[in-house]
């Protein structure tokens, strides 16, 4: 059975007319990495809140359809039951710091204290996650005296330390500089390799192309595409849904507009693919000139 099942989900925020999500159905397998892309306002954040139980337990509104996580029906469960199964990290690293702890070590332990784990278990788990996320050197610092990238890694560690079966990440790097982004994605990469189920809403196509098993495209609250990154991210029609494709794809499209791109060949989505495709193109051209 799939770890996450969303069946015919439609959700409308309070005091709004238009649904933010319409008839969403998808199954996510254990260990899968699903990327969710879409323009601003397409429903990415709403989907993340729905998956982590904050809809309908924190934001009210009208929810139809069903979400099952490890067999737990989120609409009929308590939020505290859901958060033990689904971890949520989001954009603003600053607002994810609990504010009641004075060191990073205590900050990461906060969730485990709330779960009532014994002290020894808390210590061993915190030390395990500090090593996994590569922030051992921050352990005794104040969580507020960190850079954005460091804070986001602390926020991630604080969620991961609770060992959620499903990790939901809502644009975790949107407020970070390129260095912070790379640091956070390195953590995400090692999680993906360890078999963690991850659902990531993100704009940065290069990173998605590298990690995701499947890509889901949202437009005005509906699923418009679902497939492998190669299928989805090379589709130039996505530009009309307000999605910025990677520079590799866009360059290939420009070349195609000048009728220089081989017919029927898929656009590249990563540096690796672009190097190969353009390398072939150039060597053919060199060959024809000789």
């Amino acid at each position: 059975m799939a770890q996450v099942t969303i069946n015919n989900l439609t959700y409308t925020y309070p005091l709004t007319e238009e649904p933010a999500l319409r008839e969403i159905s998808i199954e996510i397998q254990a260990g899968e990495f699903l990327a969710v892309i879409g323009a601003n306002g397409a429903g990415k954040t709403t989907l993340c809140y729905t998956l982590s139980g904050f809809i309908p337990h924190f934001f009210r509104g009208e929810l139809q359809g069903k979400i099952l996580i490890d067999g737990l029906d989120t609409a009929n469960s308590k939020l505290y039951e859901i958060v033990e199964k689904v971890g949520l990290a989001f954009q603003n690293p600053f607002n994810q710091i609990s504010g009641s702890k004075f060191t990073v070590y205590e900050e990461i332990a906060f969730g485990l204290e709330n779960l009532g784990l014994p002290r020894d278990e808390i210590r061993s788990r915190v030390e395990w996650i500090l090593a996994l996320t590569g922030i051992e050197d921050l352990a005794e610092r104040s969580p507020y005296a960190l850079s954005g990238g460091q804070q986001q890694k602390v926020a991630l560690a604080s969620i991961l330390v609770m060992k959620p079966g499903v990790l939901v990440l809502d644009e975790p790097t949107s407020q970070l500089d390129p260095i912070g982004t790379r640091e956070v994605f390195q953590v995400i990469r090692s999680l993906a390799h360890s078999g963690q189920t991850i659902i990531l809403a993100e704009h940065k196509m290069e990173w998605i192309a590298e990690f995701a098993d499947r890509v889901l495209v949202l437009d005005k609250g509906e699923i418009v595409r679902l497939g492998t990154p190669q299928q989805v991210l090379s589709d130039i029609n996505l530009l009309s849904s307000g999605i910025g494709l990677s520079r590799y794809t866009r360059v290939a499209h420009r070349v195609n507009q000048q009728k220089l791109w081989p017919k029927g060949q898929r656009y590249p989505i990563s540096l690796q693919e672009a190097t190969e495709a353009f390398g072939r193109l150039l060597s053919q051209e060199g060959g024809s000139k000789k």
Binding site: S52, F54, F58, L79, Y80, V83, E84, G87, L88, A89, F90, N92, N95, Q96, I97, S98, G99, Y105, E106, A109, F110, G111, L112, E113, N114, L115, G116, L117, P118, R119, I122, R123, V126, A155, S158, I159, M162
Partner: peptide, 22 residues
Amino acid sequence: ERAIAIEARAFNSPRQKTSLVE
């Protein structure tokens, strides 16, 4: 956002809380 963040860390869990510091 902060309310969401601390809820996500089981702040309202009915379990008996423990404490890291002794």
